[in-house]
Structure formats: C-alpha cells, structure tokens
Amino acid sequence: MRFQLITLHLMIFLKALPVYIARLLACMIVCSATAYASTVTVVISGLGGNAEYDEQFDQHATTIAEEARRVADSQQDVILVRGDAAKKNVILSLLKNLPVSNAPEVFVLYLIGHGSIDNQQFKFNVPGPDITGQELADALNTLNAARQLVVVSSSSSGALLETLAAPNRVVITATKNAKERNAVRFTEYMVNALTDTAADLNKNESISAQELFSYAQSATENYYTREKLLAPEHARIEGELADQIEVARYGVLLEKKDDISPALLARRQALSSEIDSLKARKDDVDEDTYFDTLQELMIELADIQRSIDAGG
C-alpha cells in the first residue's frame, strides 16, 4: 500500500519532484542496509499506444517495482514512474537529481515499453516527447553509483547497447539491434525471473542481473521455438558487473536478513569468492585435486548455510 502511495505521490506532485528526491535521498542514507549493497531502483512504464499495451507495461513495471521493494532497505529506494507521469522531463529530472555524494552502491533502471528509431536515433516512447538514447545516457552518466544496471525491455532497444555502454554499467536490451522492431516478449520472462526462484542458478537466494538475463533470454528463445516461430527478438547483455548486481532476493536471506550474523554473511561471501577463484583455475588444476579442494570449500559453505538457516 505504501508503495502505491509513493507512485501516486509521484503522479500528483510532479512539480515538487526535486523536493521529493531530496527526501528520498535523505532516507536512503539513513536506511542503507548493513550487509547488502544499497540499491536505488527506478522503474519506468512507457507509452503503450493502446489499452492492451498500456495495461501490460503497467502490470510488468508494477511487478518489477514490487519485487525490488521486497529487497530494498527502504520502500523509498524504489521509484515507479508510469502513466501520464512518465514524461520525458520527469524521468530525466529524476535521474539527474539522484545523489552524487553518498550515492547508492547500485543503481538499477528498468524501461518497459516501446522503442523506436527516428533519424537513426533510438527513442523510448513516453507521453509527450520521447526520450532519446543519448538523453538517457547523459542522465545516467551524471550518476555516481558504483554499479549501474540499465534494462531496456522494448522494441529496437539493441540500438542502445553502444550508446549506454560505460565501465561501471551493465546494459540489458530485449533486442540485438534497432532492426528488431516488434513488441517484445522478453519483459514477460524477465518478470518471471524476478518472481520465480528458477532463475537463481547458483541457488544463493539472490537473483543477479546475469541470472535475470540468462533466464529471460532462454525463456524467450524457448517460447519462439515452442511456438515454431521465427524469433523477432534476441536479447543482449553488455558489461562486466552483471554477477555483482542483485535484482531480487528470496528465502532466508530475505526473511531473516536482520537476524543473520554479519560475520557469517561475510564468511559466506568469502567462501563464495574462493569457490569462484578455484573454478577459474579449474583447467590448470589436476581433476582430483580440484574436486577435493572444492569439496572442502563446499562442506564449509554448507555448514555456514545451515547456521544461517538456523537463524544466524
């Protein structure tokens, strides 16, 4: 309910946007979680062009925002902009007024809607003037978050892969280029990824941007194969940090997050890093040695997991 109020608030008090953002930032600094990366999520539902798409985009954006809110330290860390509120000046102001100092560690932006190409320039369709890819990039470049995830789930979104590329940024697009112009199914499967634990490939009760992409991409492909259709969309991901950006969480880590010992979480994280490091060396290590070492690490990790499950 609170979430809906925030949305409504945005819709009604557009003119007071800078004030709102200032409040939001203040809250974010105070509410920042201890063991998890602080994250601000902005979800934008674009112009559908007809009632069916309007409703679909709105539903998807709302679900994404709800899932983000479940993870968020504060409900105000999640901003949903939809309907008539989702105008170009609102969105760009919102992005440009996010904090520069004391910035969140992670900033996540979802753009759900239609994209188009006009004079070889990508435009995300919103009420009134559309937002160009370059305007979006300029706004995002002013942000100071250590890691950024930008998901553009729209037709022609592949055109943004180069425009939005940045060292600290992961970009997910629903299409591989500007020429894939049909409305996309990727969003539906992305929403499923956020709400279904099946996307959690490493079973750490946290869905990373990489897992989100892998699940949605695979499910989209399967859809077209199953329906014996030529796939008109091919999702893409660019950026190095996709494993380090969390987009959803469930299970013990979500339910007992305030009860879990920071030391246990830290050891869990350290072990996870050691396992990743071992896996990276797999080809250079004798097979038996590799699995023996892996076994030791996994047993310790299992023990820690049990302790966490038992209440930290």
Binding site: N202, K203, N204, Q295, I299, A302, R306, D309
Partner: peptide
C-alpha cells in the same frame, strides 16, 4: 555420486539439497 553433487554445487554453490547430499555422502 560425490563427483556429481560437487558438479551440482559447482553450478550452484548455495544449492541446499545438494549441500545436504554432499554432507550425507561425506559423513559430515
């Protein structure tokens, strides 16, 4: 059995059912 459960965990280190089986197989 152990080799395959480790391969399961290699894919998903936090996979509880696999962790349980590993502990069972190793006597831990």
């Amino acid at each position: 059995a152990k080799r395959n459960v480790l391969q399961a965990l290699e894919q998903a280190p936090f996979f509880r059912e696999a962790q349980d089986l590993l502990l069972e197989l190793t006597g831990d």
